[in-house]
C-alpha cells in the first residue's frame, strides 16, 4: 500500500539546516500494523506528516497504492487524504467549538456525505468507541482518554484504508492508553492498515512490525510474532 524510496526532508532556517529524513526507504503492506520508534528528534513526526500527505518530501519517491504522490499539489493531496487516511494525534486535536458528534461528523462533511447517512455512520463509530452517551458534550468536558476515543472515531468514520497515529497514548495514563490500543487493534483486525509512532515498547507490542529510526534513517525492522 505504501512504498517510499530514498525519501528526504530538510528543514532550513536562517542559521541551521536540519536533515529530518535522510534517504529513508521502507514498505508497508495492506492490513499491516506498523509501529515507528526512535529517540526524540529522529524524524518520526516528519515521516508521518509526509505519509499523511500533510507535507511534501524534498526528494525521493512516495507510492501510495502504486500512485506516485510525492509531487501532488495541495488540492490533490487534500482530496486523496480525506478519502483514504485517518489521523490520531497525541494532543487529540478536537475542535473546541464542536460537540463530540459534530467533531466525528466533520470528515463526512468534507467528503460530501448526505446528512442522514452521516448521522447513521457517526452513531455507528461513536457506539464502537463507546462514547455515544457523551455525543452532545464539548471536548473540554471529557477526560483525555474519552477525547482520544472521539479522535479515533473521527479518524475511522470515513472508513479510511490507512490510519496514522502520532503517539496516540502519549497524553494518556496506562489504562486509558490500553483502551485506545485495543481499539486500534480491533480496527486493524477489520482490515485497516495502521502506522503508529510511539515511545512506548508496551504499545509497540500491539503492532506486527517495528521500524526503528535514528537521525532520519531506519536502523532495524523487528518483526513481532
Amino acid at each position: 500500500m505504501i512504498k517510499i524510496t530514498d525519501l528526504e526532508k530538510v528543514y532550513r532556517t536562517e542559521e541551521v539546516e536540519t536533515v529530518a529524513l535522510n534517504k529513508l526507504s521502507f514498505e508497508v503492506k495492506h492490513g499491516e500494523f506498523v509501529a515507528v520508534m526512535g529517540p526524540s528528534g529522529c524524524g518520526k513526526s516528519t515521516l508521518l506528516n509526509i505519509l499523511g500527505l500533510l507535507d511534501d518530501p524534498d526528494a525521493g519517491s512516495f507510492l501510495f497504492n502504486d500512485i506516485e504522490v510525492a509531487h501532488f499539489n495541495e488540492r490533490k493531496r487534500a482530496d486523496l487524504r480525506k478519502h483514504n487516511i485517518g489521523f490520531v494525534f497525541q494532543s487529540f486535536n478536537l475542535i473546541d467549538e464542536l460537540t463530540v458528534f459534530e467533531n466525528a461528523e466533520l470528515p463526512l462533511i468534507y467528503t460530501g456525505v448526505k446528512a442522514a447517512e452521516r448521522k447513521k455512520r457517526v452513531e455507528e463509530v461513536l457506539e464502537k468507541v463507546q462514547i455515544m452517551h457523551r455525543r452532545n458534550h464539548y471536548p473540554q468536558q471529557l477526560s483525555g482518554g474519552q477525547q482520544q476515543r472521539v479522535a479515533v472515531a473521527r479518524a475511522v468514520v470515513n472508513k479510511p484504508k490507512l490510519i496514522l497515529a502520532d503517539e496516540p497514548t502519549g497524553n494518556l495514563d496506562s489504562s486509558n492508553g490500553n483502551e485506545v490500543m485495543q481499539l486500534l487493534t480491533e480496527l486493524n483486525e477489520q482490515g485497516t492498515t495502521i502506522i503508529m509512532v510511539t515511545h512506548s515498547e508496551h504499545d509497540a507490542r500491539y503492532s506486527h512490525r517495528i521500524i526503528r529510526m535514528l537521525d532520519g534513517q531506519t536502523v532495524t525492522e523487528n518483526i513481532m510474532i
Binding site: G52, R75, A78, D79, K82, L106, Y110, T111
Partner: peptide, 9 residues
C-alpha cells in the same frame, strides 16, 4: 484540524 481532515483552501 479542518485541513488535516480534507478541508480545501
Amino acid at each position: 484540524v479542518r485541513k488535516v481532515l480534507g478541508g480545501r483552501r
